[in-house]
Each structure stands twice: as structure tokens, then as C-alpha cells.
Nucleic acid binder design. Structure first.
Lengths: 205, 205
DNA sequence: GTAAATATCCTGTTTTTCCGGGATTAAAAA
DNA sequence: TTTTTAATCCCGGAAAAACAGGATATTTAC
């Protein structure tokens, strides 16, 4: 009996492509696909695959959230993240939320099979480029922001002044200013402009 | 004789998917694929397809540039842009560079065939969502920035002050300030923070 | 139980941005 | 040829951000 595979991706072309790539493989059993988070969860209530290939971008919910949800309900399922870009932040978040591996969509058939086989053994699999991206910074590049800092950053990005933010969060202007200082330091920005740009690049806003 | 199709995409899964979708179609002839801009151009020197399906993200060159290049050399070829996201700016730029159509990667087989057939007639084809995105703003959403404004915006995003920008561009501080005012007005931003965020969202930086 | 991290608050100064007015020149479009 | 657009320049003042250099509670982690 082969490894039972299910795929969640809202791109029909990708689903077809993966199916085509896996067709020749005797060791895998194609269970079907879902094109959004809701129907994925519905499917899982009926049957449980061994491995889910999960795209990070979905119409109704991000793959990152879906990943966490699925792992909470069905911890035994192995999830492999899928995406077009090697955005460090996405890969990191998927892995944090319990994914066992990550494949970029330019993966070859060999990588795909290697990924499936590796995670089935309980190990972690990252496709070549994904691994590089993670190694390059190892949480060093994207700084850890506190809850409050994220809130303040978001409001700054919306164009609010320290005064407005202070009122909104019921804290003093000087506190907002302090958070701001910390944000500048953490993101290594010298002013608001570079702060927001950095944050945008890191998918923080 | 069917429509000769060539595909340029660096994602193997997508190439496989499209091939699988087109396999059953008698009216199309699969010419092959390229996984980067260079090998695409090399292929075109040997043979000329009727329609090229072209991804916007490529390792060596953006599909937007490749599109312009191919249309300059081989104006008779119809190009259909392909991408994962319905980023208004990308779609707009592809169309500006001579693409005849645009498909999102969640397109169905029907949409794919309709797209190919429509552009072969010399018409423009936009898949459902792509069309909506373009209609929604019709160049209204992304403002037109002048050469100088783009330069100044870029330098602001890099964290430079008006003073520094003035020195770099050999113009007066007050001129930089004027460009800045215009940028704020054009992007409907109330300060630097929202300016940079807007610019990031519109792929201006 | 103690150390580290987080969130809060403060004063004062300097720098930068933002805003409201202008104006002139050169080049492109009508 | 006239009008529009783009690029340049100016002043002055108000508002905001950045910087320096603190302090004090409260969690959280070890």
C-alpha cells in the first residue's frame, strides 16, 4: 500500500502538474485534491491521508493558518508546504506551524518524491532553495517583535502619528515613542521610511 | 494543423499541469517548454510558436522584460501572461509590453483554451479575475509617477533624508520637498509611513 | 527566587517632515 | 502657438520624528 497523498492548492494547473508527476509512482496513492481550506477540512473529516501538499496561498484562508488547524486536529498527518516564491518568512511560518517540509513549485519530480518519502519517515524536508533561504538567516534576519511592537508597527504603517497611536492603544505618547525606537533598532532602520520598507519586505505588514 | 504552443515557466509542476491539460486537446500542438528567459530566446531562434504562455517570474529575467523583448523580435507571436497572483501592476505591465492576454494559474482548462483561441484571433483575453482587477482601477489606482518622482521615492525608501537626497541628485532640498509633496498627493498618503507602504503595495519599490 | 524580557512612563533637544503658500524655466502635447 | 506637464527653486511655521538617557512595574523563563 502506497503513501496516501492529498493536495490543497487553488491553482488547477499545479494540481494537474503534481498529479501528472505522481502518476507514474507506484508508491504513492492519489487521494484527491481541494482548492480551498474549507473543502480541505471537509475532506479530512471523511478520510485521512498520510501526507498533505499544501499551498500557502488560498482564497479563503492562508495555508499558514490552515496548516496549524490541520495539525491541531490531525497531528499524525504530515504537511509539506508549497509555494512559488522562496519567501523566508512564509517558509519559516509554515515550519513553525507544524509543517514537516517545504517545496518550491519549481521542484523536480525527484525532489517531490524525496520530500514525500523523507517526511513519511518523520524527518524534515526542505527543497534545495528553501533550505538555503532558511539557513542564510536562521531567524537572524527577521527580528522577533513583541506583541505590542507589531501593533505599533501596523498602526505606523497605516499612517498614524505617535499621538494617534497612543490614543488608540490607551498608552502614553512616550511609550509609543519607545516602541518606535525599538522597532527602528530591531529592523536596523534609520527612519520611518526604511522601517516601513523593511517591514514590507519581511512581510510584517 | 493545430495552434503551436510554447511555455516559459520556471515551475516544473505548472509546465506539467498545462501539458496535462492540453494533452487531450486536438487543436493545440505542444512545442515544448523553457524554464528561463535565455533558453526561451534560444528556442525562438529555431522555431516560432503561435502562442507563448509566459510566467512573470523567472530566475534570470522578469517575464515583463522577456515579453517586451520577444514582441520586439517576433511581433507575430501572441503572448499570454501567467502568474499566481492577480497583482494589478504585473498584469498592467505585461499588457503594456505587448501581451495579448493574461491567465491566473488557477485558471480552468476551459479558460486556458478560451484564452488560447481568443488571442489567436488577434483579440485580447483576460481570465475572469484578471479582468476584474484591471477594470477596478483602469490605471486609476496606480498613479503615474514622473522619472524624478520615482527616483526620489526610491531614495526615500532607502532611508535618506531630503538633505541627503538633494546632495545625491544635485538639486535643492526644497525641490526634493516638492517632489515629496507630489508623491504624498499622488499616492494619497498622509505621511512617509503610509507613502512607503502604498509604494510597496503597488510594487513601486 | 532571580534574571531577563516586556511594557510602561518621563524630560529635553535636535532634526526632519509636513503644509501652505508661492515662482520660473524647459520641454512636450494640443 | 498656446497650454500643460515636469523639474526646478524659495520662505516660514507647525507638527512630528529621532536621539540621548534615563526610570519603574510586571511578566516570563530559567
Amino acid at each position: 500500500m502506497g503513501t496516501k497523498i492529498f493536495i490543497v492548492d487553488d491553482h488547477y494547473m499545479v494540481i494537474e502538474g503534481i498529479r501528472s508527476l505522481l502518476q507514474s509512482e507506484k508508491s504513492v496513492e492519489w487521494m484527491g485534491h481541494a482548492m480551498n481550506a474549507a473543502s480541505c477540512l471537509a475532506f479530512l473529516q471523511q478520510q485521512l491521508p498520510d501526507v498533505i501538499l499544501m499551498d500557502i496561498s488560498m482564497p479563503d484562508k492562508s495555508g499558514i493558518d490552515l496548516c496549524r488547524e490541520v495539525k491541531e486536529r490531525y497531528p499524525s498527518v504530515f504537511i509539506i508546504g508549497l509555494s512559488t516564491f522562496n519567501q523566508q518568512s512564509f517558509i519559516q511560518k509554515m515550519m513553525d506551524n507544524g509543517a514537516s517540509g517545504y517545496l518550491l513549485k519549481n521542484a523536480t519530480q525527484e525532489e517531490l518524491m524525496e520530500g514525500i518519502n523523507t517526511v513519511m519517515k518523520g524527518k524534515t524536508y526542505l527543497s534545495g532553495e528553501a533550505a538555503q533561504v532558511l539557513r542564510k538567516n536562521g531567524t537572524g534576519n527577521t527580528p522577533v517583535l513583541t506583541r505590542r511592537e507589531k501593533e505599533v508597527l501596523e498602526l505606523i504603517a497605516e499612517g498614524m502619528t505617535n499621538n494617534e497611536i497612543a490614543q488608540k492603544l490607551f498608552i502614553s505618547i512616550t511609550t509609543v515613542d519607545t516602541h518606535r525606537k525599538n522597532l527602528l533598532a530591531k529592523l536596523e532602520a534609520k527612519n520611518t521610511a526604511s522601517l516601513i520598507r523593511m517591514a514590507a519586505q519581511m512581510q510584517l505588514i
